[in-house]
Amino acid sequence: MSDQPEMIRVEAVSKTFTLHNQGGVHLPVFRDVNFSVRAGEVLVLAGASGAGKSSLLRILYGNYLPSGGRIEIRHDGAMVDIASALPRTILEVRRRTLGFVSQFLRVIPRVSALDIVRDPLLARGVEPAEATERAGTMLARLNLPERLWSLAPATFSGGEQQRVNIARSFVDPSPVMLIDEPTASLDARNRDVVVELIAEARSRGSAIVGIFHDESVRERVATRWLDITHFRAAADAA
């Protein structure tokens, strides 16, 4: 792996939440987090619930602001610091390089499942006909009945919505993927599909950081582990 380029480099990242309307209480989450991830690696974040795994993932995406440190993501061959980049730069990095797979689908009124899955392909300039075909293939692979494809997912079950979300994320895997509990409400068959999709993204050279509740999924996808409990202790002691 060491001949693969570093895609993510995290240096001295810390996070403390300050709740101004609750007496200005400070909630330290972690301190001095350092790691890097190369292309083709799957780094699994470990640590008990509440250790800050999701917060760390959101910081890597630019969704949460770190209290300190740098988050460098390789974009177009150069490292971009997400912690200090302009919003428009972050959006461009997200459009072409950095993907986030959450367990929840943000439903947009009136937009069909197929269009939700097609959207990232269109945003990257894929022809509409090809985008439709690839989106359909992905939805079929995740066993979403074809009669649902043209419907807006607002009325879908949690598992169906989650599969639409996964299809959207893996229809064109990003060079850097952040994955938060993708299999939470899936049955064994669809969990296996997600494990395959992650393996395929990895073999295409994606660098992946993930949180997986399911132990068997975790064991099957991980190439490395990072227990963040130890950074938490540092934050509590400070």
Partner: peptide, 12 residues
């Protein structure tokens, strides 16, 4: 390859 570019340089 590893040079860190200013985010603003990406704006071309």
């Amino acid at each position: 390859m590893n040079a860190l570019v200013s985010p603003n340089a990406l704006q071309g």
